[in-house]
Design a protein around this nucleic acid. Structure first.
Lengths: 329, 329
DNA sequence: GTGAAAGCGCTAACAA
DNA sequence: TTGTTAGCGCTTTCAC
């Protein structure tokens, strides 16, 4: 590989490497004529800066790390897409580290980030994440650490997430507005604060608005469990509606609805909190409260941009969910 | 950030930095006792090697770049997951570059890879990618370039992909075995060789086996187009089966099936080539020929591992598709 | 078995 | 406006 360095440009032009370095990055001291010549030669020699040298010198890389449990299409893919899209505008690249639901792997991922001295870490924690000293150790280093979506409970963290309370409240309201008062409500892993918040919001709103309304709460930490829960529920009693806390739950519930051959919305109404992709797979399309991974990615990049500018990062940023009506209620 | 360097370890131990460097990587020259002491001190000081310095010195990074059109859950997410999983075992990280369907962005992504001197590039081309010098320029550099899934036509490239011919042939066979002889067959963008191969395989197999069978071919480059195609087809005539070349097409077709309220498999049979996730969303589950993104990712990492060992990479690696029966035929 | 020293390519303080 | 120089942290000859 014919690697061109600033020295070669300098030699070619019989000037010093520092002049070349400065000219290349538009330093105001350099005369237009010199700059011109340098830029031209750089193109001619197909010069590309050696990122390793730059990083070593500056002691920071142009990389953003995203740590997520998985990539599979419920949420993170769109989050990552948004981050990647914005990042490249700023000259950053995105490195993706997957944790599964394994806190050990997550810990290892964090170490990798530190080792690579990434410019920023964006992380969605596992359901089993407990130990906090690694987070603190990173917080106290100079790497910005931003939690997204699944945020740990302990204080002082920077985070971006949807307004989980509002999202569930909106869903509850929508059901009640349509006189659905007997809800099977399926939530995810209660280890996540996101789950507890959504559940509290849903129950509270539902019963506040209509004291005689009924909620049957179920926890399902996979699509299969959600499917099961629906099948079970319809053997015992007939809820008039199903609330799904997430896409993962929605697709399980919908599988059950198909198996039971329930007519939507005649026999059962469906509403979900969702990224927006899966609800459109069905007919009628499912009404959902959108908590967009893509928008969240854009939001976090706003924060990042501020941080790069040297501004402090707000502790928490919250995205407002919106209701998207399908034909499922 | 308290950055520990080998110098600090050296100073602490009153030995030289080169000894530390050697001890740290298990160089045989170093006495067990010294090594012991170095390792211990490294742990105590929480030493982590500075990747920038290592990379600068060695002129290569521990990064694998994946360039894909998108992340959205049809295929690439599972491919990337597999690569990431295997990569970290070898101490590599994965950087993800998205091109959309834009060859300009793709080109830019390739430049980024070169600039970052990634250890390897794995790329799935856009539908508009033409034979460009940039590929050759990269091939001739020392960065391994491996195409996956969507592979360009021009010769001499290294690639991994599923056996596209076999996949479509298996699907055609399965339909005929079940006496489905009037197929609506939906294919993707004919710019991709993958599309042309699957189409040729399907038509050839279908008509070879049963000369009186009928195929109605449609091209759809999005789910919406596929949905449309199915609705149209059922207005004009009644195919007994639908073949979908990909998941993207499948979900469009299934939307139409729901809209038309067609009974599966009584009124229409469905078969798809798929990554395996979407077929299970429906009931009955859709029969599909699996072309696994995850397995492809594992395969490409095998190649990569060989390359790292200094062995040459085989020109083409092919993954055998398998039939997974649901209840849709 | 261990140390001294050069250098990977770049930036920035200091000089001129 | 431009040049000189000293590193960033590591690896690796070459010497002892």
């Amino acid at each position: 590989m014919k690697t061109t360095t600033i020295y070669q440009i300098a030699k070619e032009l019989r000037i010093s490497s520092s002049t070349v370095s400065r000219a290349l990055k538009g330093h105001p001291d350099i005369s237009p004529k010199t700059r011109e010549r340098v830029l031209e030669m750089a193109v001619r020699l197909d010069y590309e800066p050696n990122m390793f040298a730059v990083s070593l010198r500056k002691n920071s890389s142009k990389e953003i790390a995203i740590i997520a449990p998985t990539l599979s299409g419920f949420y993170y893919d769109s989050f990552i897409s948004a981050v990647e899209f914005e990042a490249k505008k700023l000259g950053y690249s995105v490195i993706v580290l997957l944790s599964g639901d394994d806190p050990i792997a997550e810990r290892q991922n964090l170490k990798t980030c530190r080792q690579r001295r990434v410019a920023c870490i964006m992380i969605c924690i596992t359901s089993k994440t407990l130990h906090t000293e690694i987070f603190e150790s990173i917080q106290s280093s100079d790497i910005p650490l931003i939690f997204f979506d699944k945020v740990p409970d302990f204080a002082g963290v920077k985070s971006v997430c949807s307004d989980d309370f509002a999202a569930a409240a909106i869903a509850a309201n929508e059901l009640l507005c349509k006189n659905k008062v007997n809800s099977l409500s399926i939530f995810g892993d209660p280890n996540f604060s996101i789950t507890r918040i959504r559940q509290r919001a849903f129950e509270q709103t539902f019963l506040d608005v209509n004291a005689s309304a009924k909620i049957q709460v179920v926890h399902a930490s996979s699509s299969a469990e959600a499917e099961n829960a629906v099948v079970q529920a319809f053997q015992n009693y007939k809820p008039d509606s199903i609330f799904c806390m997430s896409d993962e739950i929605l697709i399980g519930a919908m599988k059950a609805v198909q198996i039971l051959a329930l007519k939507i919305p005649e026999e059962v109404s469906i509403i979900s909190i969702s990224n927006g992709f899966f609800p459109r797979l069905y007919f009628p399309e499912i009404t959902y409260v959108e908590t967009s991974g893509f928008k969240l990615g854009q939001l976090v990049m706003d924060l990042f941009y501020h941080a790069v500018q040297g501004h402090a990062i707000n502790t928490n940023s919250i995205l407002n969910p919106i209701l998207v009506r399908g034909g499922s209620i």
